[in-house]
Amino acid sequence: TELRLDINGREIKVDGADKETLKELLKLAEKNNDEKAIRIIRHLLER
């Protein structure tokens, strides 16, 4: 399955993203107070 998050109005594919990319996405999600995106990205970073 493909995991996509809508961050800042942009749909971004997050599964398969490297750790650096995920960290950047996490910063974006935190800036937007997007709890769902934050939770998902943190979960991916823990893998």
Rank of each mutant, 00 (worst) to 15 (best):
L22Q: 01
I12T: 04
N8Q: 05
E2D: 15
R10P: 03
G9H: 01
E24M: 12
E2G: 05
I7T: 01
N32C: 13
L5M: 06
A17K: 11
D34C: 06
K27Q: 09
G16E: 14
I41H: 00
A37C: 05
L45T: 04
L25F: 07
R4S: 15
R39W: 05
T21F: 13
N32D: 11
L5E: 15
D34Q: 05
I7V: 03
L44V: 12
E35S: 08
K19L: 12
K31T: 08
E2W: 03
L22D: 00
E24C: 09
D34I: 06
L26H: 04
E11M: 09
N33E: 08
I12K: 01
E20W: 03
L5G: 12
V14M: 02
H43P: 07
E11F: 05
H43W: 07
N33Y: 09
E30K: 06
L45M: 07
L22W: 03
N8T: 02
L3I: 15
A29D: 00
E35V: 10
R42W: 03
G16A: 15
G9S: 01
D18Q: 03
A29K: 00
D18P: 04
I41V: 06
A29I: 04
V14S: 02
A37R: 01
N32M: 13
K36Q: 11
I7S: 01
N32G: 15
E20A: 09
E35D: 09
I7N: 01
I40K: 05
I12V: 13
L3A: 15
T21L: 14
K13H: 10
L28K: 03
T21A: 14
I41L: 12
L5S: 10
A29C: 10
R39P: 04
K23M: 12
K36C: 07
D15S: 08
D6R: 11
E24L: 06
R39G: 13
I40C: 11
K23P: 01
R10Y: 12
A37T: 05
H43C: 09
K31H: 09
I38C: 03
I7G: 01
E2A: 02
H43K: 12
I12P: 00
D6I: 15
N33C: 10
R47A: 13
L5A: 06
R42E: 10
K27W: 08
N33V: 07
T21S: 10
E30G: 05
G9L: 02
D34A: 13
D18W: 02
N33G: 11
I12Q: 03
R10Q: 14
A17L: 11
N32A: 14
I12W: 07
L28N: 04
E30P: 00
A37E: 01
L26V: 04
E35P: 06
A37Q: 01
R39H: 12
V14E: 01
L45W: 00
D6G: 04
E20C: 08
H43S: 12
R39C: 10
K19C: 09
A17N: 14
I40G: 04
I12C: 04
L22H: 00
K27M: 13
I38R: 05
K27N: 12
K31I: 12
T1G: 15
I38V: 11
K19M: 10
K23A: 11
L5I: 14
H43L: 10
T1Y: 08
D15G: 05
L26D: 00
R4T: 15
E24Y: 13
